[in-house]
């Protein structure tokens, strides 16, 4: 009976371990929790490789991207938050290293230009539709002509 219980316990342990391992191993790194893995995953998607022109550190094979992944992993495992890791990278490699640039004087154009262009477009559309709706005023002479035309078409 105790043997059976032990065996059952072993099987459960192996299964749960396999499940756990599946959950927390990613990119060759082992994580203690699924949350840590998720933070790491998000970081490698959002951080940009300074050596490459347009690749995040998850996709890049550059040695520097590897160094940054390692740094991100170590910091996540030490309990640093996602923002702390981002700040750490930006403090060394600049805003270039993050795919979401902050809003400041230099990046204002980047953030505001789409909004500005959309507003201009809407303004132009409104003006054009208004102009089209304006009724055309007829002079007395024109009104008379119109009347005549109408009567003529009735007669036909």
């Amino acid at each position: 009976m105790s043997l059976l219980k032990g065996l059952l316990g072993m099987v459960t342990l192996v299964f749960s371990m396999a499940l756990l391992a599946q959950q927390v191993t990613y990119d060759g790194y082992e994580f203690k929790t699924a949350e840590q893995r998720q933070t790491y995953q998000q970081l490698t998607q959002e951080l940009r490789c300074p050596k490459c022109q347009n690749q995040n550190i998850a996709d890049s094979n550059a040695p520097l991207a590897g160094d940054m992944r390692e740094r991100a992993y170590n910091m996540v495992m030490q309990g640093h938050s996602k923002q702390e890791v981002i700040d750490h990278m930006v403090a060394r490699y600049g805003n270039f290293a993050h795919y979401r640039p902050p809003f400041n004087l230099f990046t204002a154009v980047l953030w505001l230009a789409p909004l500005f262009i959309a507003l201009v477009g809407i303004a132009i559309a409104i003006r054009m539709s208004r102009r089209r709706r304006q009724t055309v005023a007829l002079s007395d002479q024109e009104r008379e002509q119109l009347q005549q035309l109408k009567e003529r078409s009735k007669d036909d």
């Binding site: 300074p50 050596k51 520097l64 160094d67 740094r71 060394r92 490699y93 600049g94």
Partner: peptide, 12 residues
Amino acid sequence: EGDVAFEFGVYG
């Protein structure tokens, strides 16, 4: 390991 260089933001 490039640890010193990392602090300087060396990228090449």
